[in-house]
Nucleic acid binder design. Structure first.
Lengths: 140, 140
DNA sequence: GTAATTGCAAACGGTTTGCGATCTC
DNA sequence: GAGATCGCAAACCGTTTGCAATTAC
């Protein structure tokens, strides 16, 4: 099961790395199709799985929204502003977090965690018309 | 839009409160159908939404799994052992967490967060045959 | 050469929704 | 009686999968 550097796989990774936000699978598909029109959704999802298994990308699971993908798998936590549809990386390391959790009698070992913080982002960019709907503009 | 205390709504809330674990919508539906055979899934989901809006229950979103529901909406974080299929409440308050997040220039206000920790649970109960598959046994 | 990967299209699974009938207040 | 809620069944939507053809190594 040795993974191969397919044209499709390379393109998908490029697209994620080039995006200045964290795109969804559908956005990745649309962007990649510009240079490879026959690229199928199935291939995108399969490659996202492979790339994640190899820890070359990270999947961000946001309740009630499609998953997003991050070119930097070291990120651990995210801030989501649903108003603006924007998402920001947060600095937080696993060691600090595990200290924060009161010792729970049932926990033997912690492997991973998923932390998403919801709230309102500052308007600094928006009020200059730079950020609102940026993702869609980029895709258009 | 004043919410009414329907038989169905009451039953669904009872089921969640009576469960000694955090059931999924499907489990709630199955359990509730024992005393109300015509209860439909749609009604379960609609009521779960209403109860959540009224902050009488909490929905637990676990990546890659169906949502679970908690009779105590004050819970903020959960520990999931995928091996055993078990889930535990963790003590963690929003204030402590927000201190932990390094000040991020884009954050204006934090409304809510979703924290799920994955790992392995201790075997204490399992080895006495008390916990493994408990949910299914209960449903059977 | 061969095993991994692809495109296609159909299926999946959890959740939502439109409808006319039925309840709660 | 008005409007919230119900049961039913079909639709939804992000994601997965079976298959025959193609490609990377």
């Amino acid at each position: 099961m040795k993974s191969r550097l397919t044209q499709q796989r390379k393109l998908i990774l490029d697209v994620i790395q080039a995006a200045c936000y964290h795109p969804t699978a559908e956005q990745i598909h649309q962007l990649a199709q510009k240079s490879m029109p026959n690229l199928s959704v199935g291939t995108v999802y399969r490659n996202l799985d492979v790339l994640r298994d190899e820890k070359r990308i990270k999947r961000i699971d946001i309740p009630g929204e499609p998953a997003r993908f991050d070119a930097d798998p070291s990120h651990k936590a995210y801030f989501v502003c649903r108003d603006k549809g924007s998402i920001y990386d947060l600095d937080l390391d696993a060691a600090t977090l595990s200290k924060l959790l009161k010792d729970h009698p049932a926990i033997q070992r912690i492997d991973d965690f998923s932390l998403v913080v919801f709230g309102t982002a500052k308007d600094t960019m928006t009020e200059r018309g730079m950020r609102k709907g940026r993702v869609n503009q980029f895709l258009n």
